[in-house]
Design a protein around this nucleic acid. Structure first.
Lengths: 191, 191
DNA sequence: CTTACCATGTAAGGCGTTACATGATTCA
DNA sequence: TGAATCATGTAACGCCTTACATGGTAAG
C-alpha cells in the first residue's frame, strides 16, 4: 500500500498545493480570485491555470486542508475557500523545508546562445525586444513597491515587499545587461 | 487530417527540438554529450533529461533534420548526430521568430512571499541559503567568462559570452538584493 | 576490483496548459 | 444589446522527470 502515492515518475514536485494554501493563509477567497492573484501579485515568479487550480482545491478539501463554503448570491455561483488549522500546519512544514528548486527558463537566452546561426543582427533584435519587455515590467513593479511602502506595518506586506524589491533589482540588472550587450556588439562590429 | 498535430492541450510549447538542433549546429555529437552541455553550458537558463533527449533525437531523424552515424569503437556503443541543411533551416526559422516565453519559477520567492506564516526568522534563513547558492554560481560563471574572453574571435563564443555576462549580472544583483533584504529585516526588527 | 564515467534507451506516471462548456451579472 | 468580467469546472493531450534496464571502459 502506498498512501504517499510514490511509485514512479513522481518526485512530489507539485507546488500548487502550497501556493493555494499560502494565498488562503492570507484570507479566504474563491478559485477565481486565486487565479487573479497568480496573474498579478505572483506572476513575476509563479504561475498557474484554472485547470490546475480547481482540481487542486478539491484535493485539498479531501485532505482536510481547506473547507468550502457556498457563498453564491443572486444566482451567481461562488465558492469561498478557507484554510484549516491542519492546512496551516502543512503550509508551515513546507515553508520551513529548504527550497528544492529555483528555475529560470529564458527562451531569449536560448535564442541568443544559438544566435550565430542567424548573425548578430538577430541577436540585437532579441535583446531589444527583451529590453522593452523589462521596461514595462519595471513600471508595474515600481508601482507595486510605492503602494506597498504605505502598508509596511503589516507583516504580510513586508514579505510581499521583499519579493517586489527582488523583481525590481533583477529587472534593473537585466536592463543594464541589455545596454552593455548592445555596446559590446557595436564594438565587435567595429563601430 | 492534421499533419501539424494540433487538436487540444497542444501549444507547440516544446523547445527541446531547437535546443538539440542548436547544439548540433555548433558541432556533431552524441546524445550523452548533449546532456552534458545542458548540465554545464546551458544549465543557467535551460535544462533537460535523457528521457526527453533521446526520443527527440529520434523524432528529429524521422523529420530529416538530423542524421545518425554509428561511431561505436571497441564495443562501446556510440551514435553521433549531425544536423542536415533542412534541420539548419528549421533552426533558423525558429531563431528569427520572436521569443514566446521567458519564465522564472523561484521557490525561494514563493517561500518568502508566504513567509509571515513562519516569521521573519524563516525568511532570513531562506535568503541566506539563496545567497550561498548564488555565490557558488557566480564563481562558476566568472570562470566561464575568463576562459571565453580568450576566444572571442569565434562568433559562437561571442554569443556564449553574452549569455554568461547575463548570468553574472543577474547573480550579482541577486547578491545585492540579499544584502539589502537582510538589512531591511534587521531594520524592521528594530535593531 | 571497484568506482566513476561513457553511452543508449524505455516505461510509468505526474504535472500543467489549452480549449471547451456553461451561465450569470455589470456596465457602457 | 453586446462586451467584459465574475465564476466553476472538465477533457485531452503534450511535456518532462524519475527510475529502471543494460553494458562497456578507464583510472586509481
Amino acid at each position: 500500500m502506498d498512501l504517499e502515492g510514490a511509485s514512479k515518475g513522481m518526485a512530489n514536485t507539485k507546488k500548487m498545493d502550497y501556493v493555494l494554501l499560502g494565498l488562503l493563509s492570507h484570507e479566504s477567497m474563491t478559485g477565481y480570485e486565486m487565479k487573479k492573484r497568480l496573474d498579478t501579485t505572483l506572476r513575476f515568479f509563479w504561475g498557474g491555470s484554472y485547470g490546475s487550480i480547481y482540481p487542486t482545491l478539491n484535493q485539498l478539501e479531501k485532505e482536510g486542508k481547506v473547507t468550502k463554503e457556498d457563498t453564491s448570491s443572486n444566482g451567481r455561483e461562488k465558492i469561498s475557500y478557507s484554510i484549516t488549522e491542519y492546512g496551516r500546519e502543512s503550509l508551515r512544514d513546507w515553508l520551513r523545508k529548504p527550497v528544492e528548486k529555483d528555475e529560470l527558463r529564458y527562451e531569449t537566452l536560448l535564442k541568443l546562445f544559438f544566435g550565430n546561426e542567424t548573425g548578430m543582427e538577430g541577436a540585437k533584435e532579441h535583446i531589444e525586444r527583451f529590453e522593452e519587455k523589462c521596461k514595462g515590467e519595471l513600471v508595474v513593479l515600481n508601482m507595486f513597491a510605492e503602494n506597498l511602502a504605505q502598508y509596511l506595518e503589516d507583516d504580510t506586506h513586508k514579505h510581499y515587499y521583499l519579493t517586489v524589491k527582488f523583481g525590481i533589482k533583477t529587472y534593473e540588472s537585466y536592463l543594464e545587461w541589455c545596454k552593455e550587450a548592445k555596446e559590446q556588439i557595436k564594438e565587435w562590429e567595429g563601430k
